[in-house]
Write a protein that binds this DNA or RNA. Structure first.
Length: 430
RNA sequence: UCCUCAGUAGCUCAAUGGCAGAGCAUCCGGCUGUUAACCGGAGGGUUGUAGGUUCGAGUCCUACCUGAGGAGCCA
């Protein structure tokens, strides 16, 4: 019976067939140990000289790493096996050999591995990360779907800059026009929320910033919810519920993968609502007290974010940033107009900003003023102004960067390992 | 774009300005419980590129190329 390795426990004592690849091989002359992987897991197959034909035993002796193989044998529980089970091999079929496989079980440098990313993802560690990413993406979709949000995807080709701040990738759009790859579904989300109430978009996002840090990719995935008739408070509550749900799902369903990564889960288990909420003013005060060279009015740098998040055992919501350092569409705080009704949620352990959002400017005159002040082309924003012309309501939303969440939950040094093929400043291959 | 660091065998790395080395991988041999198995042997080099200093450069100097980390900007 053909089975997947992840289901092996249900077949103890039975004869099973595994279809996969040879991950590693050890031998003691008259006994071979073949570590096989099939995409669902890794298992050690034991082949003794007395258990198979001489030809099969000889063949296994020369089997190279990553050769594709189909093997049959008896599933047996064994306390010595990392997964709890082994297979006593009775038959082996080599589908295709692999010669001089470059990603050996030994150490390799980052550049070497990145050039071979298409092979690197076969390793147990990368496998675990991508499985956790899958779980996180699924959890995000379930979270919004279960709460009545409608998935309404926003365009990837856009006619103009959404926020006017970051550098965009441009592409030739047929003969005459230039299109830009989206940096946020935000503005379209607002229109969708006016049509559907509560919506979210979930897709790739592109930033042509020449950022060269462990927290940046040029192409990354972002989920952006937007709600009509919602306030800053509503999005903070939604954000902390989302983060808590996603972390809980990863702990619940991907414990094995987190163990592979040797992730300390104690910190993740503390992620429960409510999150501490800190005004920008209070955050600035903390940074001053810690002796950092931070001036009120500026945005937080990487070090600032790390210091702030270290004050708490769970993510922290920092709200009401100065309007001057936030996007033009942020609504001013009625009590203090120099502040915006904005929020960033910072992950613990120095992983930085994972959520950014707030309440949107819903007043026509003020929005028009802001568009002009930011030197944005008004005609490109006429449709966006329409949302304030025809039944404007308070509304709010945020964006959450998937790769940063995955890096945090997995405890990774760099976001480049959280996506199968990362796109970075100097990385477009493979 | 700026700052810092790195580039030597297929991979990971050594080598005081003085003979180009090790482990792993590969190939050959040994081993019936290995977990990155181990033991013995063999093959494997335009020291990123181009100049310069020196009796002599992997090593020092200059420029360039490639990459990494960080800054700015952001999720």
């Amino acid at each position: 019976m053909t089975v997947y390795i992840e289901q092996i426990a249900a077949h103890e004592g039975q004869e099973v067939t595994i279809r996969g690849w040879l991950h590693n091989r050890r031998s003691s002359g008259k006994i071979h140990f073949l570590t096989v992987r099939d995409g669902t897991g890794f298992i050690q197959a034991v082949m003794s000289k007395s258990g198979v034909s001489p030809e099969t035993f000889q063949q296994a002796d020369h089997l190279s790493q990553e050769s594709s193989i189909v093997l049959t044998g008896t599933a047996r529980a064994d306390t010595r096996a990392p997964g709890g089970f082994e297979i006593d091999v009775t038959a082996l079929d080599v589908v295709a050999p692999a010669h001089d496989y470059p990603v050996t079980p030994k150490e390799h440098g980052v550049d070497y591995l990145m050039d071979r990313r298409h092979l690197w993802i076969r390793t147990e560690r990368q496998n675990a990360i991508l499985r956790i990413r899958h779980e996180i993406v699924n959890a995000i979709r379930d979270f919004f779907n279960d709460r009545g949000f409608i998935l309404a995807d926003t365009p990837i080709f856009t006619p103009a800059a959404c926020e006017g701040t970051t550098t965009l990738f441009s592409v030739q759009y047929f003969e005459d026009a230039t299109a830009y790859l989206t940096q946020s579904g935000q503005l379209y989300n607002e229109a969708n929320a006016m049509a559907l109430g509560r919506v979210y978009c979930f897709g790739p996002t592109f930033r042509a910033e020449k950022s060269k840090t462990r927290r940046h990719l040029t192409e990354f995935w972002m989920v952006e919810p937007e709600m009509a008739y919602a306030t800053l408070d509503d999005v903070i509550t939604l954000g902390e519920a989302l983060v808590t749900f996603v972390v809980g799902r990863a702990l619940d369903r991907r414990a094995r993968e987190l163990r592979v990564l040797e992730r300390e889960t104690k910190n993740l288990e503390q992620v429960q609502t409510p999150f501490p909420r800190l005004s920008y003013d209070e955050a600035a005060k903390i940074l001053k007290e810690k002796g950092l060279p931070f001036e009120w009015g500026g945005d937080f740098g990487g070090t600032d974010e790390t210091v702030l998040s270290e004050q708490f055992d769970r993510p922290v919501a920092v709200h009401r940033y100065p309007s001057a350092i936030k996007a033009f569409y942020m609504k001013p705080d009625p009590d203090r107009p120099e502040l915006s009704l904005s929020v960033d949620i910072l992950a613990p352990e120095g992983y930085g900003e994972i959520i950014g959002g707030g309440q949107r400017l819903d007043n026509y005159e003020l929005l028009l003023e802001r568009i002009k002040a930011h030197n944005l082309p008004q005609d490109a924003f006429e449709w966006y102004l329409d949302l304030r012309r025809y039944g404007s309501v308070p509304h709010a939303g945020f964006g959450m960067g998937v790769e940063r969440v995955v890096a945090w939950i997995c405890g990774l040094e760099h976001v480049r390992e959280t996506i199968p093929y990362p796109r970075m400043l100097y990385r477009l291959y493979p």
